[in-house]
Design a binder for these strands. Structure first.
Length: 324
DNA sequence: CCTTAGGTCCGCCAGC
DNA sequence: GGGCTGGCGGACCTAA
């Protein structure tokens, strides 16, 4: 992703667009701010002819037409009131054209159906709103639909689950393009939790006041404070005075992840922060974050962020820091 | 890429 | 019955 020029984002507005989905990228990407670039994204709603009916009882006026969308760096496809049942051939055409120009495609909620209609999702992993996941995989059997995650990042093609998960995906884009600091600041400005991981379940049990939930929170706090230590499931269970089985179960129901998956994500996040704010060598950074080796860290970076630690540092290190 | 040993995850089920 | 716990087995994952 080039940082030199403003990244253009086209938010498509098909007839009957879900107004909430449409607003998400406009708000999140439009409000992202960078220390050196005040507006890293130029976001425009694209569609027509105006006015365009939304699903929410009001019509909207797109600032740009679909030809602009075909030239954008990122194209966002929101859900529609028909939940993806109707064809929107003009959208298909624009999305295909954008893809062939190398644009990044992003769908929110049932926007996945419009993206799927292009055939571009075939053979890839994707997700959509849980209530429509089954229909998506029946209609497009070549897509590996994962109904249990907030969003799926397939590099140049990203899909998210219903509504609010679109916010998580947009924050993920900001983090991918501009690093953790910018995405955290963006989240803070929106009074949002920093960023839920993509693999997190769409359904999460109330983690709040029960004593059991509290105990897990305490353990997680301890884990975050001791990321550099090797920890086994067994030790963690002993520490919190519950069985391994119960520990795994609580993690899954409260975070949607297994204990070690959760731990690995926290380690990647810590590493991201350190890569952005320090110039300690990769080797000591890896052990500081608790990765058994630099190879292990690289593997997790690949999986979670689709990049390598070196590359991440090069992209996000502040200008003053040592550039290697 | 492979193999291997040990760890992890989760359905199942019995027990409280 | 209903809800939570934790042991067990086997599929799966990871480190070396």
């Amino acid at each position: 992703m080039t940082k030199t020029s403003t990244h253009t984002v086209a938010v498509l507005a098909p007839t009957g667009v879900v107004a909430f989905d449409l607003a998400i990228p406009c708000q999140v990407l439009g409000s992202a701010a960078h220390r050196h670039v005040s507006r890293p994204y130029e976001v425009a709603v694209c569609g027509g002819p105006n006015p365009i009916k939304s699903d929410s009882g009001f019509a909207l006026t797109a600032e740009r037409d679909l030809t602009w969308a075909a030239r954008a760096d990122t194209v966002v496809i929101p859900g529609t009131a028909d939940d993806g049942l109707l064809d929107h051939p003009e959208i298909t055409e624009v999305v295909l054209e954008a893809h062939h120009r190398g644009a990044r495609l992003v769908s929110i909620c049932t926007g996945a159906f419009l993206l799927a209609a292009t055939g571009l999702l075939d053979g890839r992993r994707a997700t959509t709103h849980w209530a429509h996941a089954q229909r998506l995989s029946h209609t497009y059997p070549a897509i590996r639909v994962d109904p249990d995650v907030l969003f799926v990042d397939e590099g140049n093609m990203l899909t998210s689950a219903g509504l609010a998960a679109g916010i998580d995906l947009c924050l993920h884009l900001v983090r991918t393009d501009h690093g953790a600091r910018v995405s955290n600041a963006t989240a803070r400005r929106m009074v949002m939790a920093p960023l839920r991981a993509g693999g997190q379940a769409q359904f999460i049990d109330q983690p709040l006041p029960e004593p059991s939930g509290l105990k897990l929170a305490l353990l997680q706090e301890w884990m975050l404070g001791n990321l550099h230590e090797q920890m086994s499931l067994h030790q963690l269970a002993d520490r919190s005075l519950i069985s391994v089985r119960t520990l795994t179960r609580r993690f899954r129901s409260e975070t949607g992840l297994s204990p070690l998956q959760w731990l690995a994500e926290q380690r990647v996040r810590r590493a991201q922060e350190l890569l952005e704010h320090s110039d300690i060598p990769i080797e000591s950074l890896a052990s500081e974050c608790g990765f058994p080796s630099t190879e292990a860290m690289r593997t997790y970076f690949r999986r979670v962020l689709h990049t390598t630690p070196q590359q991440y540092r090069r992209t996000f290190a502040p200008p003053g820091a040592a550039a290697r």
